[in-house]
């Protein structure tokens, strides 16, 4: 693995930012330790010679299942809106978004 197993604080914060997780100080320390341990452990895969893997066929599987292009109405859309934490006028509600796209 190219990444050092000893993650620093900044690495943890960067990952948490990508994953949209707010961490308090204690959590940052906890995950720095635990992530570090797991990443240290999985480094062992570096030793495995995997050249042969390319010739191994995948688990025998059927061809990908494909769907006929037919519209089927889902009749309980209220159930979907009801599960949202906040709604307005039949829409999912969020605080103002600064448009990026």
């Amino acid at each position: 693995m190219s990444g050092s197993s000893n993650l620093d604080r900044e690495d943890v914060l960067k990952i948490a930012r990508l994953a949209r997780l707010e961490l308090d100080e204690a959590e940052v320390a906890l995950y720095q330790d635990r992530l570090g341990r797991v990443l240290e452990y999985v480094r062992e895969l570096n030793q495995v010679k995997t050249e042969k893997a390319a010739t191994v066929k995948h688990v025998p599987r059927d061809a990908v299942s494909i769907r006929e292009d037919r519209a089927i109405e889902f009749t309980d859309r209220e159930a979907l809106l009801r599960n949202a934490p906040a709604q307005i006028e039949e829409h999912f509600l969020v605080p103002t978004v600064i448009e990026q796209n």
């Binding site: 307005i88 006028e89 969020v94 448009e99």
Partner: peptide, 13 residues
């Protein structure tokens, strides 16, 4: 689609 309504944004899927 995100619809921007001033003080909030609402989502149409």
């Amino acid at each position: 689609k995100n619809l921007h309504k001033g003080d909030h944004t609402q989502v149409d899927l």
